[in-house]
Nucleic acid binder design. Structure first.
Lengths: 329, 329
DNA sequence: GCTATAAATGAAAGCGCTTACATCATAGGC
DNA sequence: GCCTATGATGTAAGCGCTTTCATTTATAGC
């Protein structure tokens, strides 16, 4: 690959001038710009971004840490973020944290050493302290789906509690009173918040929560199956089920089919997230919409504004969930 | 962040020695190694990988181009590849090609300028010539799900034709004779190959293909819905439907529900890919398994062997699809 | 036509690291 | 104890670019 030096020689100008036409930082005379551009084209030159990054201490790349690369949720998030940045010539480096504190730390440090200009983090396991320290280093980053009050300006979140509230409220409005709940792992912030929302919806109807109708799952499909099986095995009556995400709801629906429970007649089921295939289930799943795409977009715009000084005015930081009624309730 | 220079000063050795303990290229005396490691720890030093990359012309990062970041298919692929590399301290940089030749070229060039040690490509739109030229540059890369004979040693593929054959053969064995087909965009290699497989299955049963039972979709869910609607509107009789991927099959199932067609009694449906939620459909979808995870793993191992000289013996390059029978046929 | 000023360009240092090559220390053979 | 072979360490030259500062060239004012 040709270097900037060869280009400058061919165009009969200095390195510095070539660099200027590449970066458009300082005006260059029209005629020399044309010469340089011609030389670049003839040599098929492309700047070596590693060298650029080293010299300028700016990499034009944004690091992203998510729990998993697979799955509908992260896929859409990543996709949206990549799109936003690509449109302005920035690029993303992605690492998976696998909901494990050590891996999350590892990923973050790797991205740092990679000279990322900013980070977008969806991390669940590192503690608040770590994130506070990270903020103190001056590295710009935005935190998705997690609120750490001391660094609130870094956080973009969904109101999970309200989402949990909406889900249960919907069932209550339909007349259900015996409502089971399959939660995500409660050490995860969002799982806990959703559950809190569920509880306060019950409270607002003056219903006392029956702890035996609670099951702590793993946010996976199998967790939903096991959860419903467990709840049914207890022999307690319930007519509706809230699942803290759609995957578990899909699992629960499978288990319900197996138990010959008609949905929604004998058991109403509601999910959470509105992942892109939540309507593949039968019956189509009622759920709470998690505006992943918007949140991804907002995270990208946060970075564009704060790090690259793009003129962006509205940065939303707390998103509202929304009830999507389909056929399962 | 501390630099290697500060470490060397603190440890009372030269830059070069520090570099040696980092890279373990040349033996260093035990006692000095310990001094250096202590200094690194005390300073919280982490090598700047951008500088490493520039100096060594080696980045320890692998570029990946896929069509989309979202979606179950690519998610799993990426996830597996990332896993493999992370385990050996390499990292991935991901770009989306969006099935568009210009974006695909763009992404590849970006990854090149990023000093990637190797590329893993799932590209559909650039032509064979471009890939041949790319191979000629000496940049190591592996091509997933596409066979370009002149650079066969770069290709890892699924036998799509056989998959298409298996799908249709399955329906034929069940006694179906009037079999409709919803294809992917035929300019895509895999779509074309799957269709060819379908045709040869028909031929092997001595059945002449009825072109009116063919619909060219877009590999998306809506394409499946529209496809089935179109086929039904024609008024021609058919008892089975092959869809060239699961998304379209899910769409077709939705359309079938709407048309009050019982599956599989009135219409048998088979998909292709076995994406992770193909069993969410109702009834659960019979499909052809695309071993994404294995292929991703193999691509990673190709790179480890060829680029990083890891001792890996078995590199499989042609994968066999497999019929997964569920409830929709 | 000459100077004062602004605009365009060039020279060169340095970003943090790797890596030939040179140098130094140590140990073994006599 | 001296010489050589070998291993450990240091020196310094880049990797391809950006950026400061100095220099040159063009523009304008008189």
């Amino acid at each position: 690959m040709a270097t900037i030096y060869e280009v400058s020689e061919r165009a009969g100008v200095s390195l510095a001038t070539v660099s200027r036409v590449i970066n458009k930082t300082v005006p260059v005379r029209e005629s020399t710009r044309i010469k340089v551009e011609a030389a670049m084209r003839e040599l098929g030159y492309r700047p070596n971004s590693v060298a650029q990054s080293l010299a300028s201490n700016r990499s034009n790349s944004i690091g992203i840490v998510v729990s998993e690369l697979g799955g509908p949720f992260y896929g859409e998030l990543l996709s949206r973020i990549e799109n936003e940045f690509r449109a302005v010539g920035k690029h993303v480096i992605i690492a998976a944290g696998h909901s494990n504190a050590e891996l999350e730390r590892d990923s973050i440090e790797f991205l740092q050493s990679r000279n990322c200009d900013a980070l977008i983090l969806h991390v669940e396991s590192v503690d608040d302290k770590y994130l506070e320290d990270l903020a103190a280093t001056g590295l710009p980053f935005v935190l998705i789906n997690r609120m750490v009050p001391s660094i609130a300006e870094h956080c973009i979140t969904l109101d999970n509690e309200q989402g949990g509230f909406l889900a249960t409220e919907h069932l209550l409005q339909l007349g259900h009173r015996d409502i089971a709940y399959i939660s995500g792992p409660l050490w995860k912030h969002d799982a806990e918040e959703r559950y809190t929302g569920h509880q306060s919806a019950l409270a607002s109807y003056g219903i006392e929560e029956d702890k035996t109708l609670f099951y702590e799952g793993d946010f996976q499909e199998t967790g939903g199956e096991q959860g419903l099986a467990h709840l049914l095995a207890q022999g307690k009556k319930f007519t509706a089920l809230v699942c803290a995400n759609d995957e578990m709801a899909a699992g629960a629906i499978t288990a319900a089919h197996e138990a010959d429970l008609a949905i929604p007649e004998q058991l109403a089921v509601i999910g959470f997230d509105n992942i892109n295939f939540s309507h593949y289930t039968y019956p189509k799943l009622t759920t709470i919409d998690y505006p992943v795409a918007e949140i991804g977009e907002m995270a990208a715009r946060w970075v564009l504004k704060r790090v690259y000084q793009r003129p962006i005015d509205d940065l939303e930081v707390l998103f509202a969930p929304q009830l999507i009624v389909r056929d399962s309730t």
